[in-house]
């Protein structure tokens, strides 16, 4: 198929960017979206033009490094699918496709479609862990965890940190990302000890990074490749209020 691409090109963090037009022929429906960009870049190399920079690594939907806005939707037209797992069979001959970076104040653009998501790292560093140093662990089966709890903790822990939730949210809120970690750890007996301080410092960090507040539009859940539920956000608020009340 033949495609008309409008791709965001921007030199660096401080310069202005704009959409540039490209036409790409002979795209096969079996190709993944990123393989389509590879094909474009291959053609740009031949012409000696600077390639379109985009982030990606595993190309199997688990590392969370890929992610662009495709026709205004985070990770493209399919729900709950990373950009790397999107295939060209979702498009048709003659389509015009707008490709832009994930946009949020807390995600500065580095170049073209590459963004800086280290704000997520700092949220984790603020408390998204259990303080268990190497060598201190007791026998694993000494604390049974019922099947449902373990499964629920897994559901929250499955987040890949791609940032689609932020990109799709009209407030650029990182509530889904942050709450998934808060819930994962608060559900497990090992994580309960630090639950009170964790939720506060992670939420404070989230705010200070410039992410917006959650107004419960639930758009994030639709785009999340791991189908992380917005119930995590409710849980985070519950944990937060609990910690405030217990403080008093």
């Amino acid at each position: 198929m033949k495609l008309y691409l409008k791709i965001w090109r921007q030199e660096d963090r401080t310069s202005y960017g704009k959409l540039a037009d490209y036409t790409l022929d002979n795209v096969s429906e079996h190709m993944s979206f990123l393989e389509m960009l590879d094909m474009l870049n291959e053609a740009l190399v031949e012409k000696g033009e600077r390639v379109v920079e985009f982030d990606h690594d595993c190309r199997e939907g688990i590392c969370g490094q890929c992610g662009v806005m495709i026709n205004g939707r985070a990770h493209g037209p399919l729900s709950n699918t990373t950009t790397c797992q999107l295939h060209m069979r979702s498009f048709k001959d003659g389509d015009t496709i707008y490709i832009e970076p994930f946009r949020a104040t807390a995600f500065p653009i580095i170049r073209d479609l590459k963004i800086d998501r280290t704000s997520f790292d700092r949220i984790i560093a603020a408390g998204g862990f259990i303080s268990a140093s190497t060598g201190q662990a007791p026998e694993a089966n000494s604390i049974p965890i019922n099947h449902e709890t373990a499964e629920a903790a897994f559901d929250s822990a499955a987040c890949i940190g791609c940032g689609a939730c932020v990109a799709t949210c009209k407030n650029s809120s990182a509530a889904l990302f942050t709450s998934a970690k808060v819930a994962h750890l608060a559900l497990l007996p090992q994580g309960k000890e630090e639950a009170r301080t964790r939720v506060k410092s992670m939420m404070n960090q989230m705010d200070s990074e410039g992410f917006g507040h959650c107004t419960n539009t639930e758009a994030c859940e639709v785009e999340c490749p791991q189908e992380i539920s917005v119930l995590n956000i409710a849980r985070m608020n519950y944990e937060y209020n609990k910690s405030r009340i217990l403080e008093k």
Partner: peptide, 12 residues
């Protein structure tokens, strides 16, 4: 043991 202490949600 180490992983469970860190909160790795292994199947149960």
């Amino acid at each position: 043991d180490q992983a469970v202490a860190q909160g790795v949600p292994f199947a149960r």
